[in-house]
Design a binder for these strands. Structure first.
Length: 254
DNA sequence: ATGGTGGCCCGGCCA
């Protein structure tokens, strides 16, 4: 069973590539971020014809998250299940084949101390409350998506160059670590201890070709899922060629 | 390079 996460940076712009990737890889579950579309234009029929149930929580121009599944898609929750609902479409959850799947697009933060940065930190704390509300650490749980946080210095191309930037600050790493303390493991890092393995590369200045990237797309899994995980991989090929997203899919096999 | 590229949708904003 393959479970994947992919920030597609506009599903409208990326649909042909997303379809091709699904046909080639046939994941049982695909979590998508940054669809940048309204629910009314989400291509659920396209995915249905490919054998997937789908659920989308969108808002239009920005954000938007979706879950595609071939193994069931039940108890779909748009937005947070606890506290004030987020004004932006950044989180969708569902039960897929007995696994609680939470698909997130964590706010970028923009700059340290920017309002958006504090929104990001609050968002991560509310995510932990959300996960605690809908799942138990002893259950099968996967919290995945674009976290816009690189967990450690080995997850960025040049830690020195990024001092003072978002994605690497201590408060961001602390809220991520605190979420994991609930009972989640960064399973790709568990399986691949070596540095400079990335999931995102800036479009600008040939970032991909220079391997100027970050590992910010994460698969956080509960212990029972971690024990059953056979393989994890970043599909760097999906970052190549015509009109790629700036993120590559991250895939795990159960 | 206080730039660069690519998405939104057509003037800047966001990533």
């Amino acid at each position: 069973m393959l479970i994947a996460t992919w920030n597609v940076n506009s599903l409208k712009a990326r649909l042909p590539r997303v379809q091709q990737w699904i046909e080639e890889n046939k994941p049982e579950v695909l979590c998508i971020q940054e669809t940048k579309m309204k629910d009314a234009v989400f291509p659920s029929l396209v995915f249905h014809e490919m054998g997937y149930e789908s659920a989308h929580f969108g808002q239009g121009q920005w954000n938007g998250v979706a879950i595609l599944s071939k193994v069931g898609l039940d108890n779909v929750i748009n937005n947070f299940a606890v506290g004030e609902p987020d004004g932006e479409a950044r989180i969708i959850s569902a039960e897929c084949g007995g696994i609680t799947v939470v698909c997130v697009y964590v706010p970028n933060g923009r700059e340290l101390e920017h309002d958006h940065y504090h929104y990001k930190l609050r968002w991560m704390k509310q995510l932990k409350q959300h996960v605690a509300k809908i799942a138990k650490p002893a259950g099968d749980v996967i919290v995945t998506g674009d976290f816009n946080i690189a967990p450690e210095d080995i997850d960025v191309w040049d830690p020195e160059a990024l001092i003072g930037s978002t994605h690497v600050s201590a408060p961001e790493r602390e809220v991520l670590s605190d979420l994991c303390a609930w009972g989640l493991t960064d399973i790709y890092r568990d399986q691949h201890p070596e540095p400079k393995l990335f999931s995102w590369w800036d479009y600008r200045d040939g970032g991909f070709h220079k391997n100027h990237g970050m590992r910010i797309d994460l698969l956080l899994v509960s212990e029972s899922v971690a024990k059953r995980t056979k393989m994890t991989v970043v599909d760097r090929n999906a970052r190549k060629g015509e009109k790629p997203s700036d993120h590559a899919p991250v895939v795990m096999e159960l």
